[in-house]
Simulated assay, not measured.
Amino acid sequence: MIKDKKVNGEVKETNSKIDAIKELIFGENIQAYNSEFESVKSDILSKKNELEQLINDIRKELLTSIDNLSTDLNIRITDLEDAMNSKLDTLDSKKVDRKLLSNLFIKLGEKISDQ
């Protein structure tokens, strides 16, 4: 343990003497290392910020794409329902052609599964 020493009526810390000696011996190297560490730290923080911004941009693009796809899918399903209703309206009101109706349902199922 390093203790404080009293010299000429003043208390001087031994730690400060050791720090002064370190600075004399290793001063330039320590400053160079500190400078390099700060440069690397700054570069890492800059890259981190760039990556966070890129992630946010991609998230926005994905959400927009999902919205567009959902809208497109809803439009296609509505068009398909309209087409099916139109075909059903053209059928004879007394008797529905089961084969035609089953083909329409099969086509509807295939279009839905393709989406």
Rank of each mutant, 00 (worst) to 15 (best):
N8S: 08
V40A: 05
E50Q: 15
L104E: 00
E23I: 07
I58D: 01
A83N: 10
D89N: 06
E52T: 10
L100K: 11
S93A: 15
D43Y: 05
E10C: 06
T78C: 09
I58R: 02
D57L: 04
L54I: 07
M1D: 07
V96G: 01
E52G: 03
L69P: 01
S42M: 01
G27C: 09
I30S: 08
K95D: 07
I2E: 13
L80E: 00
E38I: 00
I44K: 03
K5Q: 05
E61G: 02
D114N: 13
K5I: 10
S16Y: 10
D82N: 08
E38P: 00
L104D: 00
D89C: 07
E81D: 10
K41C: 04
K111C: 00
D19F: 09
T14Q: 12
G109Q: 09
D19W: 07
K99E: 12
I25V: 11
K60G: 08
L62P: 00
I75K: 13
I66C: 08
E110W: 00
V96Y: 06
I2T: 15
I30D: 03
L45Y: 02
E10V: 08
F26M: 14
D97I: 02
F105L: 09
N34F: 00
G9A: 08
F105D: 04
F105A: 05
S70V: 15
D67E: 15
I75W: 12
S102E: 11
D57S: 05
